[in-house]
Write a protein that binds this DNA or RNA. Structure first.
Lengths: 101, 101
DNA sequence: TCGCGGCATTGCCTTTTCTCGATATCGGAA
DNA sequence: TTCCGATATCGAGAAAAGGCAATGCCGCGA
């Protein structure tokens, strides 16, 4: 994809939108919102995809900064990053504000 | 991509996130927010991609319901759909609310 | 230290997305 | 009607994303 001139904020916003632009990742985020936090195994049970797939989606969410993972013995515990959600919401609010309907 | 069990609202939210998960489309939305509305040619001049590419991105945005196009003589005039933006914002707000930080 | 449970990585394949040249369409001016 | 400017659509190639089996890694209990 050809590079589009954009600010860091724009690139950051697009990255966050990308992270949520997938049904499985969106459900992971929703689960984490409801549970507060949970280990990978819980998500694998809940979702209709294989474990490596869940792990891969968690990697995408992690690199986008939407979730954080911590080591808990043999398990990995994931939770949402409130700052990332706020950044995302503000990106939309800025567009709504400029559009001044 | 394997189908993931989800509500209509979830699918709708993912669809909207998808529409904004691309640098070119994000800039189109920003431009429309600033200008209020504009014709395709203005976007083609402003963006570093070819005319068919801009047209294609507009189609994606249109099918996602984020923008609306009207015929203006030989031109097509596009503008944002405020309802879609509100839907998007509310999707994030619901997640933030459930996460109750 | 051996084995096992819990996740991450790798390798490979399939599907989707992105892009653009070429071409079709369409309204309006001549 | 004929041409032209403005967009949409088509077709194809390249790149990225998504999925999973196999495998690697790691911490912990036996």
């Amino acid at each position: 994809m050809k590079t589009v001139t954009q600010t860091t904020d724009e690139a950051r916003a697009v990255e966050l939108f990308r992270a949520l632009a997938n049904p499985v990742r969106f459900r992971i985020v929703q689960s984490l919102a409801e549970r507060g936090e949970c280990v990978v195994g819980d998500l694998v049970i809940e979702l209709p995809v294989a474990q490596p797939t869940v792990s891969e989606h968690l990697r995408v969410l992690r690199e986008a900064g939407l979730v954080r993972g911590s080591v808990d013995g043999p398990n990995r515990c994931y939770c949402l990053d409130p700052d990332a959600l706020a950044t995302l919401r503000q990106a939309i609010e800025r567009i709504e504000a400029r559009a001044c309907f």
